[in-house]
């Protein structure tokens, strides 16, 4: 997606911060120099800080070279035994992570997020495009590796759908064009099944609509190369279509779930045990057939659900 620099005039910047200005079109320096230090103190800021703030809103996120691969170099399990796997992740791939609670799934994800360099309890190393990333990348919010679709099904932000998309695009320095809004709206509506509009308040969206919007938003507006999906409840959204969308935007998709349909959609499964990757299972033909059967069952469930919702009598043969 093209990143376009948005210029904010010094006047708009300062009035947005609550300053009262009398003349328009002046330079930041002339505004700031003219301000009484006591007034600035009243506003809880100072000249130096204001200049830094103005600079910050114009700072382009450092667009690094594209992430072409992420290598997870094995560490040790909870007993200090060597983890026998190095895992290479590539864009467009779906990998599921399975294992009982407390086995170390979150630890693995935290290692990736924190770009572990042998300095976490697992001793793993994370390499981006084959090299060890810089230390200051760890604190840079522009280059977060993982965006997360967690279990929450609701928004808390007090804005409508369009304002929300614009705000998010703005924060990512993406040109918030009407075209983008249309694209997001269309996809989100397709996934959700129940239509909603640009004017719908975020907090009024149903679980399924919220989920759909979150997924489409991650696909089009998040720069992170990895999408972590905790769980996509069957909230009426088309999960296969959701996956296809995320894959088509060249994301690496990690699914930490016990939901059989989701787990089997992955190309590979990492089995976590005792704090380390214990097995890597590649999906075979048999598993694909099982997935097909499960999906048919899920579809049946969904159609009965919808029929119930519409007040119909259930005529389907189960």
């Amino acid at each position: 997606m093209e990143a376009e620099k948005r210029l904010v005039s010094p006047y708009d910047f300062l009035t947005d911060m609550g300053f009262e200005l009398f003349e328009k079109n002046q330079s930041l320096d002339s505004y700031v120099e003219a301000m009484n230090p006591d007034y600035l103190e009243d506003m809880g800021t100072n000249r130096e800080m204001l200049r830094a703030n103005y600079h910050a809103i114009h700072k382009k996120p450092e667009v690094d070279e594209k992430v072409k691969s992420i290598l997870i170099k094995g560490g040790v399990n909870k007993d200090g035994e060597k983890e026998g796997f190095d895992i290479l992740l590539k864009p467009g791939e779906i990998v599921s992570i399975v294992g009982p609670t407390g086995s170390g799934k979150s630890r693995l994800l935290a290692d990736i997020e924190w770009l572990a360099q042998g300095d976490t309890p697992t001793g793993r190393h994370i390499l981006i495009n084959g090299v060890q990333p810089d230390e200051d990348k760890r604190y840079s919010m522009d280059e977060k590796l993982i965006s997360q679709l967690s279990q929450n099904m609701n928004f808390v932000m007090d804005a409508n759908v369009e304002e929300f998309i614009r705000m998010h695009a703005h924060s990512r320095n993406i040109n918030e064009s009407d075209l983008l809004i249309e694209k997001v709206m269309q996809w989100a509506n397709d996934l959700a099944g129940e239509p909603f509009t640009k004017e719908t308040p975020l907090t009024a969206l149903s679980g399924g609509q919220s989920r759909a919007l979150m997924i489409v938003d991650v696909a089009f507006l998040c720069q992170s190369p990895i999408v972590l999906i905790d769980e996509i409840e069957n909230a009426g959204i088309d999960r296969r279509q959701a996956m296809a969308l995320l894959v088509s935007t060249e994301k690496i998709i990690l699914i930490a779930t016990h939901d059989p349909v989701l787990a089997l959609m992955a190309n590979r499964r990492l089995v976590i045990k005792n704090g380390a990757i214990d097995q890597v299972i590649e999906g075979d033909e048999h598993e694909k057939r099982v997935l097909g059967d499960l999906e048919k069952m899920a579809e049946k469930m969904l159609s009965v659900r919808n029929a119930l919702r519409m007040g119909n009598k259930i005529t389907l043969k189960v």
Partner: peptide, 19 residues
């Protein structure tokens, strides 16, 4: 408790006031 987008917008707003 919030979505990825809400987290990003919030962090961006923090970055704006404290770069």
């Amino acid at each position: 408790i919030v979505s990825q987008a809400e987290r990003e917008v919030f962090a961006y707003n923090v970055k704006k006031v404290n770069p």
